[in-house]
Simulated assay, not measured.
Amino acid sequence: MSAPPRPDAETTPIRGGRARRRFGPVRWAVALLLAAGAAGVTLPDLAGLDAHSPFAQIIAFRPLAVAVLAVFVVLGLLVTAFVRRFWPVPVLLALVALVGASLVLPRTTAEATPPPGGTPLKVLALNVYEGEADADSVAALIAAEQPDVVSIPESGARYESELAPLLEPLGYRTAASVGPWKPDVRGNTVAWAERLGDVQTRIGDDVQFPYIEATGGRLGELRFVAFHSVAPVPRSVGQWRSDLATVREWCAGEGPAVIAGDFNASFDHSVFREAVAGCGDAAAQTGNGLQGTWPTWAPQWLGPQIDHVLSTGGITAESFGTRAVPGTDHRAIVATLRVP
C-alpha cells in the first residue's frame, strides 16, 4: 500500500500568515484608538480643546495623567514580551507619554539664577476658602514669613475685619475689594507691611471677583495685584477665559507688576499660557512648577498648581514654597522675588 501524498509546501496555505494579515488592521485600530484616548486626556491643549469643558478640567491633571500613562506603557511592554503582536499599543502610548512629559518636566528645572542686585520682595498668597480659613493660623503664617505683600482670595470685608486686628500688631494694613454685604468668596483682600510706606489701593471690578491693586510707597510704580479667577466648571468656562484675559493686560503692560492669587489654571492650560506670555512664574523659575496647591486633602504631587505668583519687568524669583493652613482647601504659596 503506497503512502499518502505529501502536501506541497509551496501551495499549502500558511494559516499563521493569514491570521497575522487578518488581525493586523484590528490591532492597529485598537492601538490608534487607545492612543487617541490617551492624547485626549493628556494633550487636549495642543488642539485648543482645553478652552472648553470637559477638557478644561481634565488637563489640569496632566502631570498625573503622564505618570499613569507611563505605567500603562510599562505594562504594555510586559505584554509584548509574551505577545509580540501587541507592540503597537505600548509604542503609540509611549509617544503620547513622551510629548506630555516634554511639556511637564521643564517646570522641575530652575530657569536661571536671579541677577545680583535689586530689591527683595516677599510675596504670600492664600485662598482662604470662602473666608473659612483659620484667621489665627493665617496671622501666624504671616508673622513667621514676614512677607511684604499678601494676596488673600475669597476674602471680603467680613473676613478682613476678622484678620485685620490680628495683623495690625504685626505691622500690616489691609484692604478688601468687596464690602460686608457680599460673601467672602467674591472678594480679594490685600495686606501690606507698614514698612512699605504710603501704599495706595484700587479696586478693579471688570472681572467676576473684583481684584485689588496696591501701588505707591516703597512699591513705587510696581503694581501688586491680588487676583482670583472663577473656576472652569462647566457653566463658568467662558467667564474663566474672560478673567484670564484680564491677566494678559498686566503681563503685556509697560510698568512692572506682580500678580498673585488663585488663577484656577495651570501651565497645562493653553488659555493660561497665552494670558501670561509676558509674565514670569515664580514656581517655574525656581524649578518648583509641579508643587500642587489644591486640594489640600490630596498629596501635593497629585494636585495641580493653580495658585501663582506672576511678575513682569525683569522681576525674577529666587525662592518658592508652599505652606499648609487649617480651614482651606488651598496651600499658601510663598515666593521671594528680586525687583531690579
Rank of each mutant, 00 (worst) to 15 (best):
P4W: 01
D8L: 02
E10A: 15
T11H: 13
I14F: 11
G17R: 14
R21I: 03
F23C: 02
G24C: 01
G24S: 11
P25N: 05
P25S: 07
V26Y: 05
V30F: 04
A36I: 00
G37F: 10
A47S: 12
A47E: 10
G48Y: 03
G48I: 08
L49Q: 04
A51E: 04
S53H: 15
P54R: 03
F55K: 01
A56E: 02
A56I: 00
L64T: 13
A65M: 10
A65L: 09
V66D: 06
V73M: 07
L75A: 15
T80V: 12
V83A: 12
R84S: 11
R85W: 12
V89W: 01
P90S: 09
V99D: 05
A101H: 04
V104C: 11
R107S: 13
T108D: 13
E111S: 14
P115K: 13
A125G: 14
N127L: 10
Y129N: 14
E130V: 14
A133Q: 08
D136E: 14
S137D: 15
A139Y: 00
I142W: 04
P147K: 08
D148M: 00
V150A: 07
I152Y: 01
S155Q: 00
G156W: 02
A157W: 07
E160C: 06
E162Q: 15
A164P: 07
P165G: 11
L166I: 07
L167R: 06
A176V: 05
S177A: 14
G179S: 15
K182R: 15
V185M: 10
V185P: 00
T189D: 07
L196T: 08
D198R: 14
D198I: 06
I203N: 03
F209V: 06
G216Y: 03
G220N: 05
E221W: 05
L222W: 04
H228E: 11
S229L: 08
V230L: 11
P232D: 00
P232V: 05
P234C: 02
Q239A: 14
Q239S: 12
R241C: 03
D243M: 02
D243C: 04
D243S: 07
L244F: 01
R248Q: 12
C251V: 02
A252D: 14
E254L: 09
P256L: 10
I259W: 04
I259N: 01
A265R: 05
F267K: 10
D268P: 07
F272N: 00
D281I: 07
G287Y: 08
N288G: 10
N288S: 13
G289L: 01
L290V: 13
W301P: 05
H308V: 10
H308P: 11
G313A: 10
G313F: 02
G313D: 08
E318F: 04
E318K: 12
A324F: 12
G327V: 11
T328Q: 09
A332Y: 05
A332I: 09
A335K: 01
T336H: 04
L337G: 05
P340Y: 03
